[in-house]
Amino acid sequence: MPWFQAQMAELQRLAEEYALSQQQTASNIVNVSEKMRLKRAEFIDAVQVLVDKIGKIKGISACAAYHDGLILAQSAHPAAIDAFGATLQESARAAQQGAALLGLGELEQIVIVGAKNKVAMLSIGPLMLCISSPKQINLALALNRPH
């Protein structure tokens, strides 16, 4: 499996494991609480690691992860980080409506391409990963050449 897909699959797995830990019945709330905390930390730490790695890929301008349009993890100080979040929330809302109308299923990706730059938004569990690059960069190729 190409590098980026493998990374995304791993994050999806961690997100699902975390979601599962939330559904545990609370026979011993202290144990459940601790397990959830550890699973959440595993997931979020992995998100931060991936964001850092993507941010270092040649051709990628910035990478950040958001929750409800608010910054959760970022590669080294990308520009317009709040504008990213606002765009993400607006786009996700519109795309979700469209996806529902067209029966596309759960939203996985949104790509906005401008005359100069483009931004890809990918859903990972409760988060959205945002990757921006100049327009001419082939994101799929770049993301599968991490080194």
Partner: peptide, 23 residues
């Protein structure tokens, strides 16, 4: 601090804290 990170952690923590507190 990354506001989304802190807010996410708070939102995820609250249901557990509610249970812990009710016990």
């Amino acid at each position: 601090a990354l506001l989304g990170r802190v807010r996410f952690e708070l939102k995820e923590t609250i249901p557990v804290l509610k249970k812990l507190f009710s016990h």
